[in-house]
């Protein structure tokens, strides 16, 4: 099985000559990387087909391409390119949904308020448009990444969904 390792889109040469050793340190995510005569604690988390590697103060997003291509979720979502899904940034409790179906919303405008760990946060629409669907109501628990509101954006804005 072969992997292609990419950092910021650039393939990284990690050759077979790299005498790197990865030893378990704590739990499923914390490791000790021994390479080039140094031991460095690292944390590796698999997230949506990428690896998030934390080293010291830095987090590096490592793209991994496997032998079997996995269909991109983003690509399959292109059918609804004129709709933007506003997702919950974290698990929490919906405090309020200060918008109604059919209402206009501007980019950066609040579509919901979510509370977790005693903090309330506004969930904002990434694009200007019109509220098409509201899938949550106040008092409801939401999971992180759950779609809360759909915003229909004018055709010119289609496909401009910002990366998170």
């Amino acid at each position: 099985m072969k992997f292609e390792i990419r950092v910021r889109g650039q393939p990284q040469a990690v050759g077979a000559g790299d005498e790197a050793l990865l030893e378990p340190l704590a739990g499923t995510e914390c490791w000790r990387l021994v390479v080039g005569g140094r031991a460095v604690p690292v944390r590796v988390v698999e997230h949506e087909g990428r690896l998030l590697v934390t080293i010291g103060a830095d987090r590096v997003e490592v793209g991994v391409r496997r032998a079997l291509p996995v269909p991109s979720r983003r690509a399959s979502a292109q059918n609804g390119a004129d709709r933007v899904e506003v997702r919950a940034p974290m698990p929490g409790l919906v405090v309020s949904v200060p918008v109604a179906i059919g209402e206009p919303v501007r980019a950066g405008g609040a579509v919901a308020v979510v509370e977790a760990m005693k903090m309330q946060m506004e969930v904002v629409s990434p694009s200007s448009g019109c509220i098409e669907e509201i899938r949550v109501q106040p008092g409801q628990e939401v999971a992180g990444g759950q779609v809360m509101v759909l915003v229909r954006v004018p055709a010119s804005g289609a496909g401009e969904e910002a990366l998170p």
Partner: peptide, 25 residues
């Protein structure tokens, strides 16, 4: 900022990722 890792961290991360994938496989 937290969004601009050092080159050293990127190099180590790539190595760690490769070692992690080998272990997993």
């Amino acid at each position: 900022d937290g969004t601009a890792p050092s080159q050293e961290a990127e190099r180590l991360a790539a190595t760690a990722a490769a070692a992690w994938l080998r272990r997993k496989a």
